[in-house]
Computed example of a mutant assay.
Amino acid sequence: MIVSRTINRVFVLGIDGAGQFIRNTDTPNILKLLEAGALTYEAQTVFPSISAECWGAMFHGVDPEKHELTNEKAATLPYPENSPYPSFLKLARQAWPDCKLAAFSEWSPINDGIIEQSCGLHAVSLPSPDLAEAAADYIRANPDVKILYMQFDQVDAAGHKHGYGNEGHLQSITDCDGYIGTVLAAIEDAGLMKDSLVIITTDHGGGGDGKPKSHGSADPLDMTIFWGCYGPGIKPGTKLAADLSIKDTAAVVAYALGLSAPQTWEGKVPGDLFN
């Protein structure tokens, strides 16, 4: 497996609570990009399928029983700097002390309690429309950013309000696709798409275990998520292994940037991703 070393930066764009439901509503911006790269609707998140546990697994490459994050901890405590499971952002900071790292998270506990404070992020928390515009402005002004992460929270809120997979939830996903389109346009405008890896995914689904407005169970509706990426070295229409995990995201980011993944990480680079 050889990754193109023309990948100079990574964008990780996350939609909270989207599960695999993006295929049930209009998402033209997401699909245009990911169908030109790699996309699966059968990736798996971690149990319990709750935001902090799942985003924590994505950043730190391990199951919740190891990173020990919960929504309550993330909202009140910084992630321990002595953890044997560093995030991919901390890995980048250690490799490049002066590089630009950014996190635009609508749900502020991601910036404050899931990502280590030593990462020295440009950290922003705003509602969805404003968050997309702020990220777009940042990208255009900082084309030398190394990693930029985004999290849109409104889709999960719509799932809790309307029921996951129901009309209000699906409309929120379509709205979020528009916000992601704003960010992708900024990446294009800045001339960065040609040498960037763009990952788009979610943390969990919802509506499983007979609870249409909730999530957290091991039901496939809660556990099954979409995951996709686009960038140098990824052939259009790449088929991803059925066992792809949200934990693999950290390993993919590290590998794309030429960083050595910690042996403590459980996530792996899918063997069929980079060609």
Score class of each variant (00 low, 15 high):
residue 7 I to S: 01
residue 15 I to H: 03
residue 16 D to W: 14
residue 19 G to R: 04
residue 19 G to V: 03
residue 20 Q to P: 01
residue 20 Q to L: 04
residue 21 F to C: 04
residue 23 R to I: 08
residue 25 T to C: 04
residue 26 D to C: 00
residue 27 T to V: 08
residue 29 N to G: 01
residue 32 K to I: 04
residue 33 L to K: 01
residue 37 G to Y: 10
residue 38 A to Q: 05
residue 38 A to K: 07
residue 40 T to I: 02
residue 43 A to N: 13
residue 50 I to D: 00
residue 53 E to G: 10
residue 53 E to M: 06
residue 57 A to N: 08
residue 57 A to I: 11
residue 61 G to N: 01
residue 63 D to W: 07
residue 67 H to W: 12
residue 70 T to L: 11
residue 71 N to T: 06
residue 82 N to A: 11
residue 90 K to T: 08
residue 95 A to D: 02
residue 100 K to R: 15
residue 102 A to M: 14
residue 102 A to Y: 15
residue 110 I to F: 13
residue 116 E to M: 11
residue 122 H to C: 08
residue 129 P to C: 05
residue 131 L to T: 09
residue 133 E to M: 10
residue 133 E to Y: 14
residue 135 A to Y: 02
residue 145 V to S: 03
residue 147 I to P: 00
residue 148 L to M: 14
residue 149 Y to K: 05
residue 151 Q to H: 14
residue 152 F to K: 04
residue 155 V to E: 01
residue 160 H to W: 13
residue 167 E to V: 09
residue 168 G to D: 03
residue 171 Q to G: 05
residue 171 Q to R: 15
residue 172 S to G: 04
residue 173 I to S: 03
residue 176 C to I: 12
residue 176 C to V: 13
residue 177 D to Y: 11
residue 178 G to W: 13
residue 186 A to E: 12
residue 187 I to W: 10
residue 188 E to R: 14
residue 191 G to N: 11
residue 192 L to S: 06
residue 194 K to R: 13
residue 196 S to V: 12
residue 198 V to M: 01
residue 198 V to S: 01
residue 201 T to E: 06
residue 212 P to L: 05
residue 213 K to T: 15
residue 216 G to H: 13
residue 216 G to V: 08
residue 219 D to H: 12
residue 220 P to C: 15
residue 220 P to K: 14
residue 220 P to T: 10
residue 221 L to E: 03
residue 222 D to K: 11
residue 222 D to S: 14
residue 226 F to Q: 03
residue 229 C to N: 02
residue 234 I to Q: 05
residue 234 I to V: 15
residue 235 K to Y: 15
residue 237 G to S: 08
residue 237 G to K: 09
residue 238 T to A: 08
residue 242 A to L: 09
residue 245 S to I: 07
residue 246 I to P: 00
residue 254 A to E: 11
residue 255 Y to P: 00
residue 258 G to F: 11
residue 269 V to W: 03
residue 270 P to G: 08
residue 272 D to K: 07
residue 274 F to P: 00
residue 275 N to W: 11
